[in-house]
Lab assay of single mutants.
Amino acid sequence: FSITQFVRNLGLEHLMDIFEREQITLRVLVEMGHKELKEIGINAYGHREKLIKGVERLI
């Protein structure tokens, strides 16, 4: 299971460039909250919320 699959499953594949540029893996994403996601350029609250909720389902 990769970050690419995870992001695609959430319908947020347009954010993949950010994850690749910042070298974010699923392991790193698990540790990130709204503040960190915003810092790397994910400005939409809804997108950040989707990512965080998606990660919570993985754990």
Results as ranks from 00 to 15, higher is better:
Glu20Arg: 11
Ile24Thr: 05
Leu37Asn: 01
Phe6Ile: 06
His34Lys: 02
Ile18Ser: 03
Ile18Gln: 04
Ile40His: 04
Leu29Ile: 06
Phe6Glu: 00
His47Phe: 07
Ile42Asp: 01
Gln23Met: 09
His14Phe: 15
Ile59Ser: 09
Ala44Val: 11
Ala44Phe: 12
Gly54Trp: 07
Ser2Trp: 07
Ser2Pro: 08
Ala44Cys: 15
His47Cys: 11
Glu22Ala: 09
Gln5Pro: 04
Gly11Phe: 03
Ile40Cys: 04
Gly46Trp: 15
Glu22Trp: 04
Tyr45Met: 08
Ser2Arg: 07
Val55Thr: 06
Met32Arg: 01
Leu26Phe: 12
Thr4Arg: 15
Lys38Asp: 07
Arg21Glu: 06
Arg48Met: 06
Glu22Leu: 05
Lys50Leu: 13
Val30Glu: 08
Arg27His: 12
Arg21Ala: 09
Glu20Phe: 07
Phe6Lys: 01
Gln5Leu: 11
Glu20Gly: 06
Ala44Arg: 11
Ile40Met: 07
Lys35Met: 08
His14Arg: 08
Leu15Lys: 00
Asn43Cys: 13
Ser2Met: 08
Lys53Pro: 00
Asn43Phe: 10
Gly46Phe: 10
Val55Ala: 13
Asp17His: 15
Leu37Phe: 08
Thr4Phe: 14
Arg48Leu: 07
Val30Trp: 07
Lys35Pro: 09
Leu29Arg: 02
Thr4Ile: 12
Lys50Met: 14
Glu20Pro: 02
Gly54Pro: 00
Ile52Arg: 05
Phe6Thr: 02
Ile59Thr: 11
Phe6Tyr: 05
Gly46Tyr: 13
Met32Asp: 00
His14Asn: 09
Leu12Pro: 00
Lys53Gly: 06
Leu29Tyr: 03
Asp17Ile: 13
Arg57Leu: 12
Lys38Asn: 08
Glu39His: 09
Ile52Glu: 00
Gly46Lys: 15
Leu26Asn: 00
Lys53Tyr: 07
Arg8Gln: 14
Leu15His: 03
Leu26Val: 08
Arg8Ala: 13
Ala44Asn: 15
Arg57Trp: 12
Gly54Phe: 05
Leu15Arg: 02
Arg27Thr: 11
Asn43Thr: 14
Val30His: 09
Glu36Pro: 03
Thr4Gln: 15
Leu51Thr: 01
Leu12Ser: 00
Phe19His: 00
Thr25Tyr: 03
Met16Leu: 14
Ile59Asn: 10
Ile24Lys: 02
Gly11Arg: 07
Met16Arg: 07
His47Glu: 15
Gly54Val: 06
Lys35Gln: 11
Glu39Thr: 09
Ile3Trp: 05
Thr4Met: 11
Ala44Glu: 15
Met16Trp: 06
Leu37Trp: 05
Leu29Phe: 04
His47Lys: 05
Gly33Val: 03
Val55Asn: 00
Leu12Thr: 00
His14Glu: 14
Val55Leu: 11
Leu10Trp: 03
Val7Asn: 00
Ile42Leu: 04
His47Gly: 03
Asn9Thr: 12
Leu26Asp: 02
Leu12Lys: 01
Ile52Pro: 01
Val28Ser: 13
Glu36Trp: 03
Val28Met: 15
Arg57Gly: 09
Arg48His: 02
Val30Ala: 15
Ile42Pro: 02
Gly11Pro: 00
Gln5Asp: 14
Val55Met: 09
Val55Gln: 01
Glu20Ile: 14
His34Thr: 02
Gly54Leu: 06
His14Gln: 14
Gly41Arg: 03
Met16Glu: 08
His34Asn: 03
Val55Ile: 15
Ser2Phe: 07
Arg8Ile: 13
Glu56Ile: 11
His47Pro: 08
Val28His: 14
Gly11Ile: 01
Leu29His: 01
Ile24Asn: 01
Asn9Phe: 10
Tyr45Ile: 10
Asp17Lys: 12
Glu36Leu: 01
Leu58Ala: 06
His14Pro: 08
Arg57Tyr: 10
Phe6Gly: 02
Lys50Ser: 09
Leu15Ile: 09
Leu29Val: 04
Glu31Tyr: 14
Glu39Ala: 14
Phe19Tyr: 01
Glu36Asn: 04
Arg27Ser: 13
Ile18Phe: 06
Ser2Ala: 09
Ile18His: 06
Glu49Ser: 09
Ser2Gln: 10
Leu58Tyr: 14
Glu36Asp: 08
Arg27Ile: 10
Met32Lys: 02
Glu31Trp: 10
Gly46Val: 14
Lys35Asp: 09
Glu31Gly: 15
Leu51Arg: 00
Phe19Trp: 01
Met16Pro: 00
Glu39Phe: 08
Leu10Lys: 01
Glu22Gln: 13
Lys35Tyr: 08
Ile42Cys: 03
Glu56Cys: 11
Glu13Pro: 09
Gly46Asn: 13
His34Ser: 04
Ile24Cys: 03
Gly46Cys: 15
Gly54Tyr: 06
Leu12Met: 07
Gly33Ser: 07
His47Asp: 15
Phe1Met: 14
Ile42Gly: 02
His47Tyr: 07
Arg27Glu: 09
Gly11Thr: 03
His14Val: 12
Glu39Ile: 08
Lys38Glu: 14
Lys38Gln: 12
Lys53Ser: 09
Leu12Trp: 01
Arg21Lys: 12
Arg48Val: 06
Glu13Gln: 10
Ile24Phe: 04
Glu22Asn: 15
Val30Asp: 02
Gly54Asn: 07
